[in-house]
């Protein structure tokens, strides 16, 4: 059975291996240079110039960064689609299930070997891809101010969760294929369900894996995110927590009594004609005045120190889902399936 699984899987495995090898080659060639550029740049930049360097560095490498991140993001879905969904539907559509399920092995054993070997291959492929990209992209990740480490895009494509996603997508594909029994509909449904779950997870589940940190911070030029003074002299302001890799779940300005406000109402000391907030003065004195008046930013966030705990929790959740789906497959394959 191991021979047969391999023989049927050969071509797909070869394609994946070739693609990963190409990716690995590109990353291996450019990775060290990238790390070197970053480290020399950081060492050389002065206090104020560092934010410029960070911005320039990220913009220079934004394209490849997004490309490899997209590869890791899409890889589990492709595995589910092309390795998972056709696993059973291909046999059903060709009628070969009547041939192979009449050999001297039970359907349960047939499925077990197929799931195990192809599943391990899926996890290995996702693991290698994720590992390579995590290593290569670490300098750029440090400069990606718009993409925090705990945020959905980077969290999903670094570390070990892609392995769990791949296993889950694979199991999902096989299950859908078993229920739907035709390849193209199975692929479409697998994709739809997988995407839905991948959107639902950061939206509904991940924010609550551990109670988020809530803190009230003073707004200064170092953590300022956005500052606008409207024509009515109302100020809209927001700030980010000091932890640049944190995943901000909610953020609003609160007044001195703790009420959330949309914008700071106009006041004499905060008008463009006032001493603090005159346009040509720079933002620092204006923000000091805002702080003196009692305005703060209340942020709810998941700190970046929770990156690895969250990775393990989420891996655990997806593993449980995968095992559940696998169990469903085993139960189902012993029933009518002709």
């Amino acid at each position: 059975m191991i021979w047969l699984t391999w023989r049927q899987f050969r071509a797909a495995a070869a394609m994946m291996a070739a693609a990963l090898a190409a990716l690995a080659a590109i990353l291996a060639l450019t990775g060290p240079g990238l790390a070197h550029d970053y480290s020399t740049g950081i060492a050389a930049c002065t206090q104020s110039g560092c934010s410029d360097f960070v911005r320039h560095f990220f913009n220079d490498h934004q394209g490849p960064f997004l490309a490899v991140t997209a590869v890791v993001l899409v890889l589990p879905a492709l595995i589910g689609l092309f390795w998972g969904a056709p696993l059973i539907t291909r046999e059903l559509e060709a009628g070969t299930h009547q041939l192979v399920w009449n050999q001297s092995i039970t359907r349960t054993r047939w499925l077990a070997v197929k799931l195990a070997l192809t599943g391990v291959a899926a996890m290995t492929a996702a693991g290698l891809g994720s590992l390579a990209v995590t290593w290569w992209s670490s300098p750029i990740d440090k400069t990606a101010t718009n993409f925090p480490k705990m945020g959905p895009l980077l969290f999903d494509t670094r570390g070990i969760v892609p392995i769990a996603y791949a296993a889950f997508a694979f199991a999902l594909g096989v299950t859908v294929g078993m229920l739907v029994r035709r390849t193209l509909p199975a692929m479409a449904i697998t994709l739809a369900v997988f995407v839905a779950i991948q959107i639902a997870m950061p939206l509904l589940v991940r924010p609550h894996l551990l109670p988020p940190t809530r803190s009230t911070i003073e707004i200064t030029t170092s953590n300022l995110d956005d500052f606008t003074m409207g024509p009515d002299h109302r100020i809209r302001v927001s700030a980010k927590p000091a932890d640049t890799g944190a995943w901000v779940l909610s953020s609003h300005t609160v007044d001195a009594s703790g009420h959330a406000i949309d914008s700071i109402p106009p006041s004499p000391s905060l008008s463009p004609s006032s001493r603090a907030c005159a346009p040509q003065q720079g933002l620092s004195p204006c923000l000091a005045e805002v702080t003196r008046l009692g305005y703060r930013q209340q942020v709810t966030y998941q700190p970046s120190s929770r990156f690895w705990p969250f990775q393990w929790y989420e891996t655990g959740i997806y593993t449980a889902l995968t095992l559940g789906l696998a169990g469903l497959c085993f139960w189902r394959i012993r029933r009518r399936l002709s």
Partner: peptide, 11 residues
């Protein structure tokens, strides 16, 4: 039990 299904499916 040996079985040859309709249309003799093969890989």
């Amino acid at each position: 039990v040996g079985f040859v299904a309709q249309d003799s499916p093969t890989y």
